[in-house]
Design a binder for these strands. Sequence first.
DNA 1: CTCCATGCAAATCTTTTGCAATCCT
DNA 2: AGGATTGCAAAAGATTTGCATGGAG
Lengths: 147, 147
Amino acid sequence: MREEKADPVEIFVAFLRREGLNVTRSRLAVLRAIAAQPKHFEVAELQSSLRAQVSPATVYRTLGLLERAGLVRKLSFGETHAHYERAFGREDHGHLICQRCGRVWEFPIEGMRATLEKAAQTTGFSLREVVVEGYGVCRDCREAEPV
Amino acid sequence: MREEKADPVEIFVAFLRREGLNVTRSRLAVLRAIAAQPKHFEVAELQSSLRAQVSPATVYRTLGLLERAGLVRKLSFGETHAHYERAFGREDHGHLICQRCGRVWEFPIEGMRATLEKAAQTTGFSLREVVVEGYGVCRDCREAEPV
DNA sequence: CTCCATGCAAATCTTTTGCAATCCT
DNA sequence: AGGATTGCAAAAGATTTGCATGGAG
């Protein structure tokens, strides 16, 4: 019987040990802050939720590690700065992004990973993350200014 | 009988007129340069292909217009600077991005737009662009350094 | 004790903007 | 002519990096 680790902290600690890196107070604080964020967040939001606990440089460095550990996913939402989302404790899903107000809706994409897996196999690719995004205009914005 | 315009220049000109904007030498040069780019490109690449013809500021401004006109799509490929691809004369497709070497493979995603359309309808969203990306490690990189 | 990690500030890079000169229509 | 557009240089952001100091194993 295999025990699946679902706890992001355990996963992160295991990742760090495997890489010969230290488990530090700052790194854990960033992970904790992410768990407390809404589903997606910008780096600035994460930083202010960690105000004074962790420097910006370390927040960036830790996001990179969490990404490598598969605990966080980087998204852009069409903007010039990065957005992130937790990759743990969530079903696969896509995002609908309003190009006017920037709000984001999620929707299920079961089955889509299978399509990508197949394409990946054909290419000899080992697939880690799947990102599905739809850009357009939400109802509110359309009503506010048709066009 | 309706005549479908497939020519990007015609589409762009129509878009500009509709918006009360001028059809300028620079704008057309940017569009022409894009048509000559490989499927995806970075802004820096586009700029150097336009060396001295169009200033960087105008390249950025024009990319924004082309995006609004639906002739170009913005992608990030997980990097901090923008990538673009032509949105004309192409079937819907997804991208597989290697997180080690940055190379990109395309693959067909017929049917995926339908899934997004459905989600969009549910949300009252008017859908314009679809982006499907898979991140992972390509065969070459895996062979070069397993892990 | 030996590396690794952190903070700080400086450095990079990309993208955006203000403004005077120039181009479209 | 009259508003739109451009280039230039400066500004604004976001992210990365060098280095001396403090922390984990």
